[in-house]
């Protein structure tokens, strides 16, 4: 590799990434333009039910969205993470320990000691897709995540969560279909296309945050945008 290429890779490219990330002018202009049109700021949360960090993130994110009159769009995932990551298992085990500590910061106690498999919660992700347009979707997901991670360490049963679904959505949950599965796969593809790979990834006016550990920063970002 030539010295010029090395310098571009080691110095110019990373400095450019950092430098551009600090330029907020365009974001603020876009936010002001949207406000003038009466449009709300969008927050997209890509999350997985089998991720305890999602249960940590969502209540705070709902509060922040409400405080800034932002629209919180929930996009459930089944597949997530980095392809071929040799530390994937360690990450899921550590996420339990770490989530327990993060929950304790808010006086909450995680009910689970071992990771859940994505397939164990796949029906919840499908139901979230099915109720995507319902105004109570976010409260259903928040309650389901709370039950899943703070309510019990039992394997999730469709019966338990059907009652929560009915309470918020006002109907029995649908059977999981191939269309639901396809939508979930599309969410994973969209996450990667937009430049992230994991749950719970919040995209706030175009900027990415790991929502479980950056709620204060998300709040500050929205405030800076005047949202």
């Amino acid at each position: 590799m030539s010295a010029v290429t090395e310098y571009l890779r080691r110095a110019v490219a990373p400095r450019l990434v950092v430098g551009l990330s600090r330029k907020r002018g365009l974001q603020q202009l876009r936010a002001a333009f949207r406000r003038a049109l009466g449009l709300r700021t969008n927050i997209e949360l890509f999350f997985a039910f089998d991720d305890p960090y999602a249960a940590i993130a969502l209540p705070g994110l709902i509060e922040i969205a409400a405080a800034h009159n932002a629209k919180l769009n929930l996009l459930p995932l089944i597949a997530r993470g980095i392809d071929g990551d040799p530390a994937a298992t360690q990450r899921s085990v550590h996420a339990i320990t770490d989530s327990r500590r993060l929950a304790q910061r808010n006086g909450r106690t995680l009910a689970r000691n071992t990771p859940l498999a994505a397939e164990d919660c796949a029906f919840l992700a499908a139901w979230t897709i099915a109720a995507a347009q319902h105004p109570n979707l976010n409260s259903f997901v928040a309650d389901a995540l709370a039950q899943l991670w703070f309510g019990s360490d039992a394997l999730p049963s469709a019966d338990t969560y059907a009652a929560i679904y009915q309470q918020h959505i006002g109907a029995l949950p649908p059977a999981v279909t191939a269309e639901h599965r396809a939508s979930l796969a599309s969410n994973t593809a969209l996450l990667k296309k937009l430049g992230h790979w994991e749950s719970p990834a919040a995209r706030v006016a175009g900027e990415w945050y790991f929502a479980h550990e950056r709620l204060v920063q998300i709040d500050a970002h929205l405030r800076a945008l005047g949202a």
């Binding site: 990434v17 950092v18 392809d83 990667k192 992230h196 900027e207 990415w208």
Partner: peptide, 13 residues
């Protein structure tokens, strides 16, 4: 593995 999306996220964060 360290995909570009993760490298960028780490730098921005």
């Amino acid at each position: 593995p360290l995909p570009r999306s993760k490298q960028f996220y780490i730098l921005r964060d």
